[in-house]
Amino acid sequence: MPKVTMIPATINPLTLLPKVAAQKRRVAGYARVSTDSDEQFTSYEAQVDYYTKFIQSKPEWDFVKVYTDEGISGCNTKKRDGFNSMVSDALAGKIDLIVTKSVSRFARNTVDSLVTIRKLKENGVECYFEKEGIFTFDGKGELLITIMSSLAQEESRSILENITWRQRKSFADGKVHLAYKRFLGYEKGEDGRPTIVESEAKIVQLIYRLFLDGKSQASICRCLEDLGIPSLGGKEKWSKTTVTSILQNEKYKGDALLQKSFTVDFPEKRMKPNEGEVPQYYVEGSHPCHC
């Protein structure tokens, strides 16, 4: 009989770290809140402070940093700079373990969550979700994450549906909300309703008068620039698009057409112009006009 000698494994196949060496794991935290409110900001600060101390308290861990995203929705990971930077650093070999509050803090999109976790796992990077007590290198980790991510995604869908319902109820009641920062001639009054900004109203009236005199949008832009009137963004140049939007916007005559666009999919939250798919509401005399 041949003599067989077993040579023990020296590398952990999941962490890719030597089994024998007492090498510390490089650990990063991830904190995210989904709105910019003061209450959520406090939660955001608390998360950063907590995970900094939590990671530094473990003698077997080396603290890397806490990656953060503030005021960003969790339904999709594309716009989360902190999250993407963390994943990039992890794949570059700078992180061994990522610690975060829960599956829903990581991603509320099941596909995004699983794809990212698998990519990290293939590169020897583990994630730990504290609330659920899940380590992704654990055999049951992926099944639990799939379930938890699906629940979080459905919760997010339910929240979006409730928000949409409240918005449409508000539309049906004729309640008008203006994006004042991008709307020339109006500001929010003390009673919460739109009030006219006289200096800006004169610009709007001039644009309409020039148009009624037969001027094109390009000619109107040149006239405004020659008079030294800055655009809404404070720029010297006016764009034809801005002038056209002012000429076509019913709000300048005191009316409002509500639900001009709507959300067509989840979780991307992609907006689409309303071409009859959902009801619209036309409110006459909803606020003072520039007449």
Rank of each mutant, 00 (worst) to 15 (best):
T164F: 08
K131W: 06
Q153L: 06
Y186V: 00
R168Q: 07
I203L: 04
N162Y: 09
G192M: 03
L210Y: 05
D173P: 05
R168L: 01
P194C: 05
P194I: 03
S156A: 12
K131I: 08
L210A: 03
R209S: 10
R166D: 09
S150D: 00
A172D: 11
E130T: 10
I196S: 08
I159G: 05
V204A: 06
Y180K: 09
T146F: 07
F183V: 13
Y180R: 13
S156W: 00
T195C: 13
V176S: 06
E122M: 12
A152V: 05
L120D: 02
D138R: 01
S149F: 03
T164Y: 10
S199D: 13
T146K: 14
A179N: 14
K175E: 10
Y128R: 06
R168T: 07
E155T: 14
L160H: 11
E142Y: 06
T195D: 06
G141E: 02
S158V: 09
R118V: 14
L206E: 07
E154I: 06
Y208Q: 01
S113G: 13
Y186F: 06
K169S: 12
R166Y: 06
I207Q: 03
S149A: 07
E187L: 07
W165Q: 11
V197P: 10
V204D: 04
K121L: 09
R157Q: 08
G174P: 10
K188E: 13
E130M: 05
Y208N: 01
G139K: 14
R118Q: 14
V204R: 04
L120T: 08
I134K: 03
A172H: 01
D112N: 12
R168G: 07
I134Q: 04
C127F: 05
D213M: 09
G124M: 00
R157N: 11
K169N: 12
G214F: 02
P194F: 01
I117D: 01
E155K: 03
T164K: 14
L160K: 07
E126Q: 12
K169L: 09
F137C: 04
Q205K: 15
M148T: 11
T164I: 13
G185A: 07
E161C: 05
L178P: 04
E130I: 05
Q167F: 08
G174E: 02
E126C: 03
T195S: 10
C127L: 11
E161D: 15
I203R: 01
K119C: 05
R118H: 14
L184I: 11
R168D: 11
G214D: 03
E126F: 00
S149P: 01
K121F: 02
I117F: 04
A172K: 00
T136V: 04
